[in-house]
Amino acid sequence: METTSADAHDPDAHEPGTPPPGGARALVIDKPGTHRLVSGPRPSPGPGEVRIAVHAAGICASDREVYDGTRAAGYVRYPVTPGHEWAGTVDAVGEGVDPALVGRKTVAEGFRACLRCGRCREGETSLCESGYDETGFTRPGAFADALVIPARLLHPLSDDADLSAAALLEPAAVVAAAVLAGGPLPGDRVAVVGAGTLGLLAVQMLAAYSPGELVAVDPRVRRAEQGLGMGATRAVTPTEAAGEAGRYDLVVETAGAPSTADDACLLARRGGRVVLTGMFEPGARGIDPVHLAVSQLTVRSVFGAPSSAWSHAVRAFDAGVIDPAPLITHELPLTRFAEAIGLVGSGDPGVGKVLLRP
């Protein structure tokens, strides 16, 4: 990785890997497989904007796609500073923004919705018709010391919030969108397919709805069993789950594996609900249309989260309904990005959520 370094003859030189006085660092991916850590002036917020001192930013599979060059065309713009899962503190505000926000712990929505189109006016800001535009993919993200974003996207947190845990509120908002779409009812039999970050957050959130049964499904037994401490009543492998086809009122799919969309539909009872949350890659197995029609399933998909789901997730976090902290297994500095992105792509079942700490 190319990094800035201090000059021994420069009186303003700073320690390598740390931001210069009054400046800030940012991790930049110029093109797939190429990254560098740059230093420059600390950005200033413009009208309607705030500047965030980033506390922590999570790395997820979509960031790995950006680095590998496998993210779908139109959903990334190089060069880019990734980082769409983050938490931090407001340290400056632009013209027209309430100065009382300075010092507030916060997270923020990533989608830059237009707020004018038909979908936005219906409250479906993740379906904005003005085109895809998201922090960390088409706009500079939080793999940096500082981040400038529109103040309207903020979701302030309580003063005692754990900012490392709060960095997982972006995936929690996606899960909230899935749960709200699924409409869980007390006593429902519920299955969560996948026990990664999304899946275990889904288990926590669904447990609050008092399901009659809440099953975590994952071939990684250790990960599925982690759900038992988060509200799941059972942990099973996909092979074991296949023997329970047609059992569940609600199935929330979070894995994005080649077969899990079809698997989720097979687990649902006749007339049941299925929500697809995982990010599928080309070649994934499709849903059998005959089974879909005959079983009269309701199938929804989720990509990102509207403002309402963000509000739901933040309230659940502040109330202690969800606790993302146990999902974090690694926290590394920006200077160790190569190691961090390698962990995310390693397939090691012991790797959960990896955070970068500026």
Score class of each variant (00 low, 15 high):
Arg77Leu: 08
Leu154Ala: 06
Tyr248Glu: 01
Gly48Phe: 07
His312Asn: 13
Cys265Ala: 15
Ala261Gln: 08
Val28Tyr: 01
Glu65Thr: 11
Val76Ala: 09
Glu65Val: 00
Ala340Leu: 05
Glu95Leu: 14
Leu206Ala: 01
Gly33Val: 02
Pro11Arg: 13
Val302His: 04
Val236Asn: 04
Pro150Cys: 11
Gly23Glu: 02
Met205Trp: 14
Pro282Leu: 05
Glu134Leu: 09
Arg119Tyr: 14
Ile59Leu: 15
Gly58Gln: 11
Arg273Thr: 15
Val80Ile: 15
Gly110Ala: 06
Ala293Trp: 03
Leu327Gly: 01
Gly74Gln: 12
Ser39Pro: 01
Arg25Asp: 02
Thr125Lys: 00
Phe111Ala: 03
Ser130Asp: 11
Pro156Tyr: 03
Cys117His: 09
Ser126Ala: 14
Arg25Cys: 04
Ser44Gly: 13
Trp310His: 10
Asp145Ile: 01
Asp188Glu: 02
Ile341Thr: 02
Phe143Ser: 00
Val190Gly: 06
Val203Thr: 14
Gly131Val: 10
Leu163Tyr: 05
Gly118Met: 03
Pro43Thr: 09
Glu244Phe: 05
Asp98Arg: 15
Thr237Val: 08
Val290Lys: 02
Glu134His: 08
Glu213Gln: 15
Glu109Met: 12
Gly227Met: 08
Pro238Ser: 14
Thr125His: 15
Ile341Tyr: 00
Pro289Thr: 02
Ala61Phe: 06
Thr70Gly: 13
